[in-house]
Amino acid sequence: MIFEKRTERIVLAIFFVIALCIPLFLEDNSFFVGKVTTILILAVFVMSLDFLVGRVGLVTLGHALFYGLGGYLFVILTPEYEAVNFWVYAIYVMGISALVALVVGVVVLRTSGIYFIMITLAISQMVYYFFFDSLEFGGSDGLFIFMKPDTSIFGLSFLDLDNPSHFYYLSLLAVLITLVAIKIILRSRFGRIVEASRLNPERTEALGYNIFAFRLISYIIGSTLAAYAGLLFALQYGYVNPQFMTWEMSGTALVMSILGGMGTIYGAILGTITYEGLLYIFEHLSDDWMLFMGGSIILMVLLLRKGLAGYLEKLLEK
C-alpha cells in the first residue's frame, strides 16, 4: 500500500468519491465545474511544490516559472490554426520543461538555504519580465489558444476538451497520477535517499551518495509536473500570460502547501481546496475579503502547526 497512514487513506477516499461525482450532479452548472477544475489543476501544481519543499527540502520561490512555462511552451509549439494532439504536445511541453529545469537546476542547486530562495525567485522574475516585455510572446497580454487540441489516442477519441465535464475528469486524472507518482517515488530507495539528505546532507553524502544529483533529479521531476499543471490551466482558459509566472503565484502555492501540512502530499490537495474555498466565500461575502483571507490564514497557521493534514492525523491516528 503506497498510502501508509490511515488519515491519508480516509481523506483521499472521501476526496476522490466526491470529486468523481461532482460533474454528475452539476452538469448544468458549468461555472462551478470549471471552478473545481481550476482547483484540481492548482492541486497538481501545489503537490509538485510540496514534494520539493516538504520532502526534498528545496524551498523554492520560483516554482511558478515552470507553471507559466508549461502554458507558454504549448502555445509557442503549436501551429496557430491547427488542432494538435494533446498527448503528443503534453509530452513535448514536459520534455522541454525538464530540459529547462535541468539547466536552471544546475545553477540554483549550487546554493542552499536563503540563497536558494533568493536565486529561484530571481530567475523566475527574470523569465517573468522577459515574457512581460516580449512583443513576439504577447507581452503582458500573453498568448491565446485558438484551437483546442484533439485528445485521441491511436484514433480513438473519448475526451472532448470543449466539454467542461471532460476537462474536469482530465484534471482529476492529473491529480491522481501526480499523487501516485510522487508517492511511489518517495517510497523507493531514491525517495529514502532524498529524505535522508533533506535531514542531513553531509551524513547522506558520507553514505556514498551524490546529493547534488539526487536534488537535481527531484527538481526536474517537480518542475515537469508543475509545467503539466500550467499546460492544463492554459488549456482550460484558452490563454497564457505572464501572470502565471508571478512570484505571488509561487507564494500562494507555498501557503496552500503549508496550510495543508507541508510534505504530506495529500495535504497539498486539502490546502488547495481550503484556500480556494475560503477565497471564494470571502470574495462573495465582502469587499474586504483580503482582510478575512489574511486573518483566517494567520489563525490556521497558529492553530494548526502541522497544517490540516497534521490536525487530522492527530484526530485519526492511534
Binding site: R189, R192, E195, A196, L199, N200, R203, L207
Partner: peptide
C-alpha cells in the same frame, strides 16, 4: 547518526 525521519528498514533500504 540516525535519520529521525526514517525507520530501521528505510535506513537499510536507502543505504544498500
Amino acid at each position: 547518526g540516525m535519520f529521525h525521519n526514517l525507520t530501521v528498514k528505510e535506513h537499510l533500504q536507502m543505504a544498500a
